[in-house]
C-alpha cells in the first residue's frame, strides 16, 4: 500500500470512529454469528491491551531493584503498547464490520506480526537483564 493510500485509510478510519453509526448505513446486515465472532475478536484484542497495561504496572511494582530509568522506560513502553492495542481493537472491529456488510474480504494487517516481534524483543531484553543480575 502506498503512503498516501495508507494515510487516506487512516483518515477514513478516524472518521468512522467518530461517526461509527455510518457503518450501519451501507451494505446488508451480516449473519449475527459473524458479528458476534467479530465482537469476540475485538474483546480478545482489548484483553491483550489490558494485559500489556497490567504488565506495565507489574514491572513498576515487582522489579523494584531494576535501575530507575530502565524501569520507567519498560513501564511506559508497556502502557503505550496497551493503549495502541486498544485503539487497534476498535479500528479492526469497525473495518471488519464494514467489510462484512459490503461483502468484501476481511482486512489484513501487519499489527499482529509487529506486536509479536515487539513482545519477543521485550522478553529477550528482560531475560538479558535478569542474567546480568540487573534486577537484584
Amino acid at each position: 500500500m502506498s503512503r498516501g493510500g495508507g494515510l487516506r485509510a487512516a483518515g477514513e478510519a478516524v472518521r468512522l470512529w467518530f461517526a461509527p453509526a455510518r457503518v450501519r448505513e451501507e451494505g446488508t446486515t451480516p449473519d449475527y454469528r459473524f458479528s458476534l465472532a467479530n465482537e469476540r475478536t475485538f474483546l480478545a484484542w482489548l484483553r491483550t491491551g489490558l494485559a500489556l497495561i497490567g504488565g506495565g504496572f507489574a514491572v513498576d511494582q515487582f522489579l523494584p531493584r531494576l535501575h530507575g530509568t530502565l524501569r520507567v522506560s519498560f513501564t511506559v513502553v508497556l502502557l503505550v503498547g496497551g493503549g495502541l492495542c486498544a485503539l487497534r481493537a476498535v479500528n479492526h472491529w469497525v473495518r471488519c464490520e464494514r467489510a462484512m456488510r459490503r461483502g468484501e474480504d476481511l482486512p489484513v494487517s501487519r499489527f499482529p506480526g509487529a506486536l509479536a516481534l515487539a513482545v519477543g524483543l521485550f522478553a529477550a531484553a528482560v531475560v538479558v537483564l535478569v542474567l546480568l543480575g540487573r534486577t537484584n
Binding site: 470512529w17 497495561i53 496497551g82 486498544a86
Partner: peptide
Amino acid sequence: GLPPRTALLLIGCTLALALCGA
C-alpha cells in the same frame, strides 16, 4: 450487534486506565 458507542467507551476506559498508570 455491538453498539459502536459501547466499543468506543470501552476503549476510552482502557486508555484512561493506561493514563492513570502513567
